[in-house]
């Protein structure tokens, strides 16, 4: 008899099916709220798609390759902004990567625990500062420094990427401010990745007589590489979409930048600048399509970055 009863109870338990109506509703409610997050992303993509319809229909793929951007004659092309975004993010990552990685190695591998705790706080504080405050700082501190000091000196080198009058605001200024802004992301994630590398890999090398630099280079960095790369990707994602600070220091001209001193615009900065003044539906649609390009780019970059970081941490 008992044999007949037990399996029934066991299956019921194993299936974990909620028995009471309240529990069923509770599970349903939570699942719906979870799905709400998925729906949110879906709606964002759909709304952008809908808004950009006129532009998608009219320009097709040529939107991506055209350099004309002239709202008064209904000419819209994304290339100047795509190039502006790529230039500024490239400068930001080139400047921030060595500083971020070096800083992370110092904090994770070298600094005594107390110093690490003391130093990590201000670096995380950098991440909490709103973008518009960085923009203010960039506009009134970084740009004048560039105009008076750095740009004339770089211009004297005679390289074609450093051509043009030193106006301060422009591609280089935006790249510099972005570098500061992505630094905390880079440092925090890199520290997480480095700390996740097993101690034994360092100790093995120390036992063989390695110096600290050799232990890090041979024992830590190879294992950490995918995760560090992922941290870079996430920083890249942040730089690609950053809007306010860039809008304030890039000069906002819808032209293909000829040098690093030139003013320009990025995908995000032109949207911020023009949407409220865009009266024609086509202009709005073109801006929305820029948003779509931006969304696609950041989604791809951050998805890859997350997967890489997660694989190393797991």
């Amino acid at each position: 008899m008992t044999e007949a009863v037990l399996p029934v109870a066991a299956t019921r338990h194993r299936s974990l099916a909620p028995r009471r109506t309240g529990d069923r509703l509770w599970r349903l409610l939570l699942a719906l709220l979870g799905l709400g997050v998925v729906l949110a992303l879906f709606f964002v993509a759909r709304e952008l798609w809908e808004l950009s319809r006129p532009s998608l229909r009219r320009f097709g793929l040529s939107f991506l390759s055209s350099t004309d951007w002239d709202p008064t004659s209904d000419a819209f092309g994304a290339l100047p902004f795509a190039v502006g975004t790529l230039w500024t993010t490239a400068i930001a990552l080139l400047l921030a990567a060595p500083v971020g990685l070096g800083g992370a190695i110092f904090l994770a591998e070298m600094a005594p625990p107390r110093l690490r705790a003391v130093l990590r706080f201000p670096i995380e504080l950098l991440a909490a500062i709103p973008s518009v405050v960085y923009g203010l700082w960039g506009l009134f501190v970084v740009a004048p420094l560039l105009r008076a000091g750095l740009e004339p000196r770089l211009g004297a080198l005679g390289l074609s990427i450093f051509e043009g009058p030193p106006v301060g605001v422009g591609i280089l200024c935006a790249g510099l401010v972005l570098a500061v802004m992505v630094l905390p992301t880079l440092v925090s994630l890199s520290i997480d990745v480095l700390v996740a590398v097993p101690r034994s890999q360092r100790e093995g090398l120390y036992a063989l007589g390695a110096t600290r630099w050799e232990a890090i280079r041979l024992g830590v960095l190879p294992t950490a590489r995918p995760g560090l790369f992922g941290a870079g990707m996430l920083a890249l994602g942040r730089a690609l979409g950053e809007t306010m600070a860039v809008t304030m220091v890039i000069g906002n001209s819808p032209e293909l930048p000829r040098s690093l001193f030139a003013t320009g615009a990025t995908l995000s900065s032109v949207i911020a600048n023009e949407l409220t003044e865009a009266v024609s539906p086509l202009h709005q649609a073109a801006l929305a399509e820029l948003g779509l390009v931006l969304l696609g780019g950041t989604l791809a970059v951050s998805a890859v970055g997350r997967l890489l970081v997660r694989r190393t941490l797991a």
Binding site: V37, A40, L41, F43, V44, A45, E47, L48, E50, L51, L234, G237, R238, L240, G241, E242, T243, S268, I271, A272, L275, L287, A288, G291, L294, L295, T298, L299, V301, S302, A303, G305, R306
Partner: peptide, 17 residues
């Protein structure tokens, strides 16, 4: 996680629409 990586200007644009 991915939604957290979407630029906030894009969110504003979608709500505008």
């Amino acid at each position: 996680e991915v939604l957290g990586g979407v630029p906030s200007i894009v969110l504003g644009l979608a709500v505008y629409a």
